[in-house]
Write a protein that binds this DNA or RNA. Structure first.
Lengths: 327, 327
DNA sequence: CAGACTTATGCTCGATATGAGCATTTCAGG
DNA sequence: CCTGAAATGCTCATATCGAGCATAAGTCTG
């Protein structure tokens, strides 16, 4: 009953992994470092040094600064990844050996993709890694032409009929097949399902087999970085619905169309412009500045700013728990 | 630029920390283990053994079973705690020394608080630890009589007037003072603020000072376990609004009043019965079983079950992102 | 320089959802 | 058989949501 923590002291390395998003020209971009070797892109990561860093966040900010010359703004912890099997590719990438590698993933948001003082890091649209997640101009053809048929035959591969049905239910709910809704927040579930079905390059790579993924399934990343990126995308897509985090991606003043484009780029589907605006000012999130931006190609748009001061109330909730008056 | 993970290998222990909730008699309970020494209650925790456990979850389920004889059901990762300063009390509790201790917190849900085969662990209502969070019968008096005055004077202690205002804004939004709304999801923020203001016993204890917390501020827990519990409560309170996780706390059949009592116990405020029911069947979450429960003291209530099969759609969303038709 | 085109912004309408009550049903107990 | 305690059923005013129409104010093109 008395747990002995000392028993657990053994080769164990904790890394910090940063998914850093910025918006630029209305597109959500992620900070990508070209891999040291092997050609697979990665995201900034580095060791957590227990003796030097009082908290994860301090460590993270420090080496992100060192690696990319970049000062992090909003930061939140994502998830801690600790499955065995992660270490092999990570060790190859970083030189660590014979140690179990955990990583604590962080999501960082920052307004505007500033140029970087480091040639190994650059901003890349997330759509390169998840082409099937971008529904802004309709359901992507990779979904209908490649993924759906491939997943249907993956379902059929299951031996027992019961397992086939279970697989299909999962595919249906996750990918919004046969009339089920596409839920943009399930980006991580989709990536994991594709991995399981062997439709992304990482699946075969991690088993040491030759690539078996179809064309067009996005760019593979080192280690499990693409899974981490999917985690971040899912989290961000969920969070913008109940916390005003989008504004962390905007500069001080912006037009409502700018804001809408960023939200669309995050969510991956188009918004209804008028209703989006109505919701914005009902919530009191933005305030006009009086100034206008006239480089829009049409009628000049007013510049707005984030109205931090209005957020005192409960400016964001979910639904369906009907609160009663004080009992 | 090339991070060297080996540099980080040094005394580092990873623990797994479980917050296990169950519902019993319409009350949300948490699994508490009486501390080995010192008398402070704790929650189940144990070392993560990298060589024995392929994943955190496997490790967690294993030693929870060993420690409490209890088989975990629904499990989700909460947060990873790694601030320096945690290790001292944890080490004292577990015998580890000279090592930085991280813990990966997990939330586990399970229907019905079954009796435990271990006398050191028992089920306890969460309200013992957070009396100020229970608004089911109105705003608790500890809030109005003790916490609010104490926090107001804490605000005044700040030297600069600007800092006073900032403190007060934070207190106001977090505790719903002066007309601001009480947001039940901010349980963690409230605990952290109380800690900062020295109003919970852990604050002085962690600095090695004599207890300075007022009476009635709930039971202190070992190490940072109460913070972890607050994290779990906040997470659960948020999650029930957009995922049907409450049903993980219910047994196979239940009356709608049972369900409502559990939701109320989680959220900490009373619900409007009729509207709660209307929302339930609009969402299609439950299905009647035809059987009735007649031990209710009034008209017998129909027994319902969770309608898993109806969940294919997007049976849960947040708000305010007005989705447009296909672009 | 007028008319076409683009983008911003305003407004309306019907369908739903939400917050709050009132009314009826169906047991257990005296 | 009357009464109290729940459980259920219904209604209504108001707020919100999804859609579409209309107008305003610039740039661009011929």
């Amino acid at each position: 009953m008395k747990p002995d923590l000392n028993a657990a002291i053994q080769p164990l390395v904790v890394g910090l992994n940063a998914v850093i998003f910025a918006a630029s020209e209305g597109e959500l971009k992620v900070l990508v470092t070209e891999s040291v070797e092997g050609g697979e892109p990665a995201m900034p990561f580095g060791p957590f040094n227990p003796s030097a860093h009082r908290t994860f966040e301090i460590g993270l900010r420090e080496w992100v600064r060192d690696q990319t010359g970049f000062e992090l703004g909003y930061v939140e912890q994502l998830y801690t990844f600790g499955d065995r099997g992660r270490e092999a590719p990570l060790a190859a990438l970083a030189g660590a050996q014979d140690a179990r590698v955990l990583s604590v993933g962080y999501l960082g948001l920052t307004p505007d993709a500033r140029p970087l003082n480091n040639t190994e890091a650059h901003w890349d649209s997330w759509t390169r890694f998840f082409p099937w997640e971008d529904h802004r101009t309709g359901r992507p053809s990779i979904l209908t032409k490649v993924i759906e048929p491939a997943l249907r035959s993956w379902c059929d591969e299951a031996a027992a009929p019961g397992r086939r049905a279970a697989r299909f239910d999962r595919v249906r709910a996750t990918f919004g097949l046969d009339g089920a809704l596409w839920n943009e927040e399930r980006a991580l579930d989709r990536y994991e399902l594709l991995y399981e079905a062997g439709l992304v390059a990482e699946a075969a790579r991690d088993r040491g087999e030759p690539n078996a993924a179809p064309e067009g399934m996005g760019v593979a990343m080192a280690s499990d970085h693409r899974r981490i990126l999917a985690t971040a995308l899912s989290r961000l897509r969920g969070k913008i619905k109940y916390r005003p985090v989008v504004f962390e991606l905007m500069s001080d003043s912006f037009t409502l169309s700018d804001l809408q484009r960023v939200v669309e780029s995050v969510s991956g589907f188009p918004l209804h412009k008028q209703n989006f605006r109505r919701a914005l000012d009902r919530a009191g999130f933005v305030a006009g500045t009086g100034r206008v931006e006239s480089q829009t190609g049409g009628r000049p748009a007013e510049l707005y700013r984030f109205a931090r001061e209005n957020l005192t109330a409960g400016a964001a909730l979910g639904l369906s728990i009907p609160r009663a008056k004080e009992g």
